[in-house]
Design a protein around this nucleic acid. Structure first.
Lengths: 335, 335
DNA sequence: CCCTACCTTGCCAACGATGGCAGAAATTGC
DNA sequence: GCAATTTCTGCCATCGTTGGCAAGGTAGGG
């Protein structure tokens, strides 16, 4: 690859002049600029980012660290949103997936430091709390789908309570009064929050909470859809069965569909179903298409980059911003 | 962040000695080495990859370019396989998704050149031919899921014919003699190859090809599962209906499931179904779990990195290696 | 005791770019 | 026509690291 030196030689000017052309410095004669630009094109020259970084200290690099997220096709849009936003700002994204292994994580962060990233975005598969001390103090960090134990890092998390409420209210709005909820049994923000939202929605509509309508899938969460199938069957066999079911996620809705069909009921006429996550290849393809709550992954990725670069509230009231992103309703045909 | 200079000062040695410690040069006295290592740890020093590159010309960076692939959660394992393999070799992966826009693609390649990537892996969403001239001559390129018009770039593609044959033979092996095939209507390697494999399998078993058993979904490919639903319904309504159906991909199998159920038939007892792609969140979750042909994405990502680094046949018989990867059968419960 | 190795260390140049400064050339104002 | 200003250009140092080379020190052998 050509260097600035060769360009200078071939154009018959000094290196400094070429550098000025590259950086749009106004103090270059038009004729000179044109000549230099022509040579640059001829040689297909591009200035070395590494060398430029040496002088300027601007690496234009952003680290994107994920735990298991990337292994699990769900939240791909998060990466795309971040990548696109970074790209618009002439930054490049490093991608590293750690498999949630703390040792790998440390090495990954070190590797990113080696490459002088301007900051690190850390995104988790499941909404959870993370430990602040695993991140270095001297690099900006933005958390996605998780938050620091001491809230000392800016973070972006989905509004689980709002989402749970929205899902439930969507069903209540259609006149349903017996709304089942198939949740997962874990003390994490997602199941707890969506549960809270479910209860809020019932309260808003003046409907008493009925614990019999709420079922929990126990760990391990293998074969989620199958476990949900069993849950929903038992819900539908109740004396006073639900006419609508809120599933913790779209994969589980798949199991719910099977259970409803097995019971010779129709969706949405006899039983309405609503999911969560908006996994397109599931939700848009099953029949009838699944109405669901979207995890706004693209937007979260986008915001993460903007916060990292200081464009958006990485600081709120003098403390690291803790952002809650609304989860919108995606209307399809299952309600 | 600390630099090598500060480490040297604090340890009371020259910069060169610190460099020697960093690079495991044997000519360092044990006492000195220990002292330097202690200071390195104290200052949490890490050598700058950019500066190191300046001297050595080794950037340790690999570009990973995708067209639409990354937007579509299918082939995530490809990226993970590449990332993990790169990581084992102390390399970092740049990820860029171009959305198949040639303008964006050019810019992406330029950005990667700016950062002195040691090579570029270009992966496409669909198996297809690409134009050689869009890539620079002076950087190693490995193609995944695509191949150059003039075969002048090493490439890795799935063996579509073998996969189609394997899928069909799996069904024939179970005693099925009327095997339907729901394909997509496109002049691309995947549908053409799988079709060829289907015919080969029939021939191997001495079963005459019946065009009535093969259906094509026309473009646009929106709502693939729904279109497949209609196709499969009409297949099952034939006088001599198929007892097994090979679906071009897993999403389409979802539609096939619905059609079979609609016809009051059981899977796999009355109708066996086999898919293609092994999209886990679909195939493993639906009921019964889908038997399918796997696109070995992880392995393809892995091989791509190894080829790029010259570890594996990037050259075969003096020409760029064109690798065909076998697609293995994943047995679940639908056959 | 000296010579020869080898071990250990440090100095300097270099990678490819940009910033500061100074000098040369061109332009302006009187 | 000359000084003052503006425009344009080039030289040198610098970023953080490693390679080449040389020099000082230590030990071993004769």
């Amino acid at each position: 690859m050509a260097t600035i030196k060769e360009v200078a030689q071939r154009a018959g000017v000094s290196i400094r002049t070429v550098s000025r052309v590259l950086n749009d410095n106004p103090y270059v004669a038009d004729a000179t600029r044109e000549c230099v630009l022509r040579v640059i094109q001829e040689l297909d020259f591009r200035p070395s980012a590494a060398a430029r970084y040496m002088r300027t200290g601007q690496s234009q690099l952003i680290g994107f660290l994920t735990d298991e997220l990337a292994q699990n096709a769900f939240s791909y849009d998060l990466i795309i949103g971040a990548q696109q936003t970074a790209w618009e700002r002439q930054k490049l994204l490093f991608l590293l997936n750690t498999g949630n292994d703390p040792h790998v994580e440390r090495r990954a962060i070190n590797m990113m430091r080696d490459h002088q990233v301007e900051g690190i975005i850390y995104a988790t598969m499941y909404h959870r709390e993370i430990i602040r001390s695993q991140f270095p103090e001297d690099i900006p960090v933005v958390l996605v789908n998780c938050f620091a134990d001491d809230r000392s890092l800016p973070s972006i998390v989905p509004d689980e309570i709002g989402g749970g409420r929205l899902a439930t209210e969507t069903l209540l709005n259609q006149g349903h009064r017996r709304v089942g909820f198939v949740n997962v049994a874990a003390q994490e923000p997602a199941p707890l929050g969506r549960m809270a939202g479910y209860r809020q929605a019932l309260a808003n509509y003046g409907i008493p909470f009925d614990a019999a309508l709420v079922r929990f899938i126990e760990e391990p969460f293998e074969g989620l859809a199958t476990s949900t199938y069993d849950c929903v069957l038992s819900l539908l066999e109740m004396d006073d069965p639900p006419t609508a079911i809120f599933c913790f996620n779209d994969m589980m809705a798949l199991g719910a569909y099977d259970a409803v069909r097995k019971s010779n009921l129709r969706i949405p006429e006899d039983v309405a179903i609503i999911g969560y996550d908006n996994v397109e290849i599931l939700a848009a393809q099953i029949h009838p298409p699944l109405t669901t709550i979207e995890l706004p992954n693209f937007e979260m990725g986008r915001l993460a980059v903007r916060m990292l670069l200081g464009e958006a509230g990485s600081i709120q009231d003098g403390r690291p911003g803790q952002h809650m992103i609304e989860c919108p309703l995606i209307v399809r045909g299952s309600v």
